[in-house]
Design a protein around this nucleic acid. Structure first.
Length: 817
RNA sequence: GCCCGGGUGGCGUAAUCGGCAGCCGCAUCGCUCUUAAAAAGCGAGGGUCUCAGGACCGUGUGGGUUCGAAUCCCACCCCGGGCACCA
């Protein structure tokens, strides 16, 4: 008798059996000759239970892991939690909960949900970044960066809420106001820790060659983020003082078009020059205003804003003295904090010049007639023939950039230079729930590293979370007071904690050596498993997490701890799960949760709904694919038909398999294998449905379909692991798991089509079709085409002037009419 | 503004070395079974017209290349994402 499909009966059972059998434990047995494969999912953030985004991402990652396992790999598929972070601390502030208890409770819930979903994790390697035995090594790594000069302190602005007396993360600033109390946020300068990622800017670009299977857009996003610009640094001289000010430009060929000069408000020379020129009273309000503007509001600055400094800068290429200004449109963070302004060829400079009635000088003539600077309404493109440019008159631009740069160098007026948009990574957070920065500030010794044997610097448990004043660690009565590790005198701990991105920059190394006590990981373990075979996660981490992880890996490489320079050569991004065009959120009240679906219809259904909805990398709009709560989802009905079909095929036993089914079986193995290699889960599932339908037809016709049923169950295993296991072990009677069976192979000849459809067109329109042998030659195709009914009719009274023959698939008669 | 994606039935999608547009599903409609419903099963379906053979139209819009275009080229419209005073 065939069985009704009832996942609630067998899914929980297999969760338990798999755990008892240790089915998904990666093997460290040296005798295990299978190739190793590291299937990694971005570790989740434990706020609440799993959401739809997790269901989507981890379903895809699990398919990859299971597919590799079935293909005979020794698979490492670990899981852990990105457990530090602001959510836990906010929960503590809001409901007086302990962040640790809140976090670990969520982790337990997510872990249980993952198990119920049938994720093939190796639970023995589970970790949480808030575990002291994990953050001990986060701190250890920080100290290695510190020793190498890659971690340093400097002044940097933060978002500050004057009412709550606290630092806010950028996400906590909504429309320039504190999300909690609505007070306008201010900018404050604090001394903070940075990682010197800018030292690695060029390598982060160069090593992109090794990212062999990254989505192109992620590479582009990182490239834009790093923002390499080539150009020249040119030194101007302040006429009134003789001091030299260097600027950076990507267009040194426009140097002859400079008509004024602009400083960023933060430029160190501004105050001195303004006081000297007697303009400080006019300059100061602008400087104060910009410095008080919150970081978030600094977008969209008015290009016309700025004040005169009252001094002049001498252009080194022609000796002209041009007026200097201070303006917010020039950034201290990029280039040198001062610019040469070429209003004729730069839109911002143009707008500023118009607003301040400054001259505009064209130095690159566009093709066609001349342009009058008086009547220009926007900056001209900097492409064309150079004019008014001294020795370079008549040269082409931008072709002359290299020549101009070389000339500047020989004249001693400048040099080639490269600048990056990338800035150093600000890693300190004035927050409680993170890894404490293991530094002690000593009045006599300065910044002193906590010795390795005193790690971890543990977070204290008894902390007041209410906002106000300094960060919770700074307010703790005793925690920060320690003896200086160097001189033994009274000293204070650094009270900042690390950005959670520090934890996530190295957690994947730790999976290779769970429990290792002599370092963050055992180098031999990492060499065995890494680089990661396939990394899966959301595109929201396209820049920060992935860039930081690449940076960490390069530093570890330079420390001699790993041999490779890229941790994740292959990356797969899933799309987002949204609802009715908008992201799901509590405030919108449109959250759909995966676990109720798992409870009602089974984990296999939840996985299949996600994977069949569309291409993995595309967003899923749940509104468009959801079925009413009490209606069986389509994929569930399909699993029901699979159960019936497999049961019937077993009952039918060894009856002969029809040739058409045999061929389809091989074609399906080929197709699904190829689809899985390219993460095309939706088309793979579609092919499995086709095979199911064909098996059912064969059985209806009284034929046998046992071989096809077996193949179907195996191919189903990565997508619907429970149903496949139940059918494999119970219906098909195997003692061992389907998940350790060998992925079926296919016969190339059998997988090819034996007949094809010959399409006959007249003037490009289909007039007849015929089933023909795949081996049909041109003559044969023509003969069949000429004889076809619809063709004869369409050709009636027309003269065929050309015959296009693509045997065996197509014949096109072209007529004169 | 610049840089990427994308636009195909009522819906999710499939088909891109140019060669049958709409595979596989969802929803819908009809039928079978049933006292009934559910479940299950079978069947229909891009649009318009139709002497019921078929004809014409159809992959965002308009052009182009080609025997032949969802696919290639040009221009434009719309949607999504990234970057954005980066000198």
């Amino acid at each position: 008798m065939t069985r009704r499909y009832d996942p609630s009966e067998f899914e929980p059972r297999w969760v338990q059996v798999w755990e008892e059998e240790g089915l998904y434990r990666a093997s460290e047995d040296p005798a295990d000759a299978r190739p190793r494969f590291y299937a990694l999912d971005m570790y989740p953030y434990p706020s609440g239970d799993l959401h739809m985004g997790h269901a989507e991402a981890f379903s895809g990652g699990d398919v990859v892991a299971r597919f590799r396992m079935l293909q005979g790999n020794n698979v490492l598929h670990p899981v852990g939690w990105d457990a530090f972070g602001l959510n836990a601390e906010n929960a503590a502030i809001k409901r007086g909960a302990d962040p640790k208890i809140w976090t670990y409770a969520n982790i337990e819930q997510q872990a249980a949900s993952f198990k119920r979903m049938g994720m093939s994790f190796d639970w023995s390697r589970r970790l949480a970044s808030s575990d002291p035995e994990f953050y001990r090594w986060t701190q250890w790594l920080f100290l290695r960066f510190f020793e190498r000069g890659l971690a340093y302190r400097k002044n940097a602005p933060v978002n500050w809420c004057p009412k709550d007396q606290t630092v806010l993360a950028n996400e906590q600033v909504i429309d320039g106001r504190c999300e909690r109390c609505g007070t306008p946020v201010e900018r404050r300068d604090l001394t903070q820790w940075f990682f010197k990622i800018t030292d690695y800017a060029q390598r982060l670009l160069d090593d992109m060659d090794e990212l062999t299977a990254w989505p192109e857009r992620v590479i582009t996003m990182q490239r834009n983020w790093i923002g390499r610009s080539e150009g020249a640094e040119v030194t101007f001289t302040i006429q009134e003082t003789g001091e030299e000010i260097t600027i950076f430009t990507t267009r040194p060929d426009t140097l002859w078009g400079v008509t004024f000069f602009v400083f960023a408000v933060e430029h160190p020379a501004v105050r001195r020059l303004a006081e000297l020129a007697g303009t400080w009273d006019a300059v100061r309000p602008l400087v104060d205003e910009v410095r008080a503007t919150s970081l978030v509001e600094r977008d969209a600055v008015d290009t016309t804003k700025g004040v005169s400094l009252g001094v002049h800068a001498v252009n080194p290429v022609n000796g002209e003295a041009v007026p200097c200004f201070v303006a917010p449109y020039v950034l201290m963070e990029y280039g040198t904090g001062a610019i040469m302004a070429v209003p004729a060829h730069d839109q911002r400079d143009f707008e500023f010049a118009r607003a301040h009635d400054l001259p505009i000088k064209i130095v690159i003539e566009p093709a066609g007639e001349g342009v009058d600077p008086e009547t220009m309404t926007e900056a001209l493109p900097h492409e064309g023939r150079m004019v008014n440019s001294g020795p370079f008159d008549g040269e082409g631009s931008p072709a002359s950039i290299a020549a101009v740069t070389a000339w500047l160098e020989t004249e001693g007026r400048g040099s080639a230079a490269t600048h990056f948009r990338l800035r150093d990574w600000l890693l300190s957070r004035q927050r409680y729930w993170g890894a404490p920065i293991p530094i002690v500030h000593c009045p006599s010794c300065g910044e002193v590293a906590v010795p390795d044997d005193q790690l971890p610097v543990l977070l204290p448990d008894d902390v007041d979370f209410q906002p106000g004043g300094e960060s919770p660690l700074a307010r703790h009565p005793t925690w920060k007071h320690v003896a200086c590790p160097s001189c033994g005198g009274e000293a204070e701990r650094d009270t900042d904690t690390m950005d959670t991105f520090v934890d996530s920059s190295w957690y994947y190394f730790r999976y290779c050596s769970p429990g290792y006590g002599d370092g963050p990981f055992r180098p031999e373990d990492v060499e065995r498993w890494m680089p990661v075979g396939q990394y899966t996660g959301g595109v929201e981490h396209a820049i920060l997490h992935l860039l930081y992880s690449r940076f960490f890996t390069k530093v570890l490489h330079d420390m001699g701890m790993v041999s490779f320079v890229e941790p994740f050569p292959r990356l797969m991004n899933q799309g987002q799960v949204i609802y009715d065009g908008a992201s799901m959120s509590k405030t919108k009240g449109n959250i759909v949760e995966p676990m109720p679906i798992v409870e009602r219809w089974g984990a296999d259904t939840m996985r299949l709904v996600m994977l069949f909805a569309g291409p993995f990398e595309d967003d899923i709009d749940w509104k468009l694919i959801e079925s009413p709560p009490d209606r069986r989802p389509g994929v569930t009905s399909w699993l029901g038909r699979v159960f019936t079909a497999v049961g019937d095929a077993v009952e039918r036993g060894g009856a002969a398999e029809p040739e058409a089914l045999r061929r389809l079986r091989h074609r399906t193995v080929k197709g699904v294998t190829e689809d899985l290699e390219r993460f095309r889960f939706n088309t793979a599932i579609s092919k499995l449905m086709v095979l199911t339908n064909e098996i059912r037809s064969a059985l209806d016709a009284g034929d046998g379909a046992l071989a096809a049923a077996e193949v179907l169950v195996q191919l189903l295993a990565p997508f619907a692991p429970f149903a496949a296991e139940e059918l494999w072990r119970v219906e098909l009677g195997s003692a061992a798991s389907v998940h350790t069976s060998a992925w079926p192979s296919f016969d190339r000849t059998a997988a090819s089509e034996d007949t094809v459809t010959l399409v006959v067109q007249v003037d490009g329109k289909v007039r007849a079709k015929a089933e023909v042998p795949a081996t049909l030659d041109e003559e044969g195709a023509l003969e069949i085409a000429r004889g076809a009914d619809g063709v004869r009719r369409a050709l009636d009274g027309r003269e065929v002037v050309k015959e296009i023959v693509r045997a065996p698939k197509l014949v096109n008669f072209v007529t004169r009419h």
